[in-house]
Design a protein around this nucleic acid. Sequence first.
DNA 1: AGAAGGTAGCTTGCAATACAAAGTAGTGTA
DNA 2: TACACTACTTTGTATTGCAAGCTACCTTCT
Lengths: 114, 114
Amino acid sequence: MKLENTKIQMRKGVLEYCILSIIARKEAYASDILNTLKGAQLLVVEGTLYPLLTRLKNSGLLSYSWQESTGGPPRKYYQLTELGEQFLKELDLTWNDLVHAVNVTTNHKSNDHE
Amino acid sequence: MKLENTKIQMRKGVLEYCILSIIARKEAYASDILNTLKGAQLLVVEGTLYPLLTRLKNSGLLSYSWQESTGGPPRKYYQLTELGEQFLKELDLTWNDLVHAVNVTTNHKSNDHE
DNA sequence: AGAAGGTAGCTTGCAATACAAAGTAGTGTA
DNA sequence: TACACTACTTTGTATTGCAAGCTACCTTCT
């Protein structure tokens, strides 16, 4: 039972929420998102992100537009749709419920300040 | 994109942590565990719990003993092994890290008091 | 004694998602 | 043109929760 695997499993299911939040703040393309996640110690790889972005787009939560980059290939910038913003609000509540439920179950004292 | 599905996905990966925590406090059998989880608004079904308990036992984190019940069939009570207790300590940290990372990413203000 | 009801444990097929790895494509520079 | 870098995409694999169905034990009722 690898701790690293447990981290991966715990990460499952919350990435959607994180990614929608990142995009909600400011339209972003994949590398932006990966770097923001990395900055928060959430290490995610392309093979995860791209299919996820596609799923969110196909579900109507995201839209995208192509934009020229300053010196490389064009980039696919994503924005939240109206539906996406609504959904994100639900996810805020859902996440909060989950944290509360887990902390109650584990009798966990959160050190989180925010 | 169903919100209910998102809840399920978010739940994945944290149940192991919750279950180990419940058992760490006091040895328990499956229905105990299900009821405790239900009490914390974590609805889990037998099809999830039994394979999970088996996996944890096979990984050396849990041990079990059969005990007579007061009026029904015998029960399988689980306890944490030494290894299980060590692992749970790691999970405490891991969970805390994840909550922090997600809250940072989502700019989430936790309403959790604990 | 047998049936019914309740409790307890178990398994399997399916769906969803993260990872690892490999590949394609556009732009700029040597 | 070839190479390096950036950006996007896809696929096979592994893991885990859910839904559904099943077996088995104990007690009570007929």
